[in-house]
Design a protein around this nucleic acid. Structure first.
Lengths: 149, 149
DNA sequence: TGAATACCTGACGTTGACGTCAGGGTCGAT
DNA sequence: ATCGACCCTGACGTCAACGTCAGGTATTCA
């Protein structure tokens, strides 16, 4: 295939992803990640694994989810991938397929609502900050004008 | 004055603010909060204190700051309030005032940049989600069209 | 083939943000 | 004055998300 199957050891993977080796093992222990293994039992991380780690970190720092909640989100997303696969599988009946796709829609919509809410709150916060900023800028302008007498 | 000076005990204050009594004491211990005290040493919380708690929670859950970082933000904001007071104090020289106001501008701008960055990241996340949603919706539409044969 | 390096699995330690409990003090109404 | 409800200060417990360390294994490269 065209995809370079460069697999990284846990040290290099941790460095690339910007997390500790311990964190990678911990994520795996919680079922968030499942890298390949050599015959001897050494972990091998693909690009997809690294992307998954980035995703985990984003859900952590951006949305403030804990690892259990993140596990749920990832399970949902994996489910969607499964559904996509089943959609192209002729052994899956049409009714069943529709049901699966509906389910994935609901999952994504739920997450979207959460993100949306957070975004709205952030906007409010930003508006508040800008208002304060404007008032402080005014104060400074007044001060400069007064000193121009 | 028109302001009702209704001061709450720690129990009522905790209930109002939606946090535990322990949390209120802890915030105070870290210098995030400084409620009044009765002669006997019982804490009395004003509306301003409750607003401050709300602010603390927002900085925690919305921006993901830890209590040390929040302490820094609050110190900054208190500093701005001081500056405002000094601005109306004739004992403060004009140059000094300008310096203080500039400082408060810088403080707010820094915070604003952080919030802005987070907002941008959230927007990206949302766009990504919407793209996935659209593709899933398409899949569903295809499925419905196919079943209409 | 052997040394250097990277990695493995427990298992105990740490940090932040509180929870919880004991033993005693304070307040407001009766 | 006193009684019950509320509150105080330690001090130890807890939970998530790792950090760290010991004792042994896998891989790689000369």
């Amino acid at each position: 295939m065209g995809s370079e199957d460069r697999l990284l050891g846990i040290g290099a993977a941790a460095q690339q992803a910007g997390v500790s080796e311990r964190a990678l093992r911990y994520y795996q222990q919680l079922g968030l990640l499942a890298p390949m293994c050599t015959a001897g039992g050494l972990r091998r991380y693909s690009d997809a694994d690294l992307a998954r780690v980035a995703h985990i970190r984003e859900l952590q720092t951006l949305l403030g989810l804990n690892l259990d909640e993140i596990a749920a989100v990832l399970r949902d997303e994996d489910r969607v991938a499964e559904i996509k696969a089943a959609y192209h599988d002729h052994r899956t009946g049409a009714g069943e397929r529709r049901e699966l796709v509906r389910e994935s829609l609901a999952i994504h919509a739920t997450l979207r609502a959460q993100v949306q809410a957070k975004r709205a709150a952030l906007d409010d916060f930003l508006a508040d900050l800008d208002q304060r900023l404007a008032r402080i800028a005014d104060t400074l302008a007044d001060l400069d004008a007064a000193s121009a007498d």
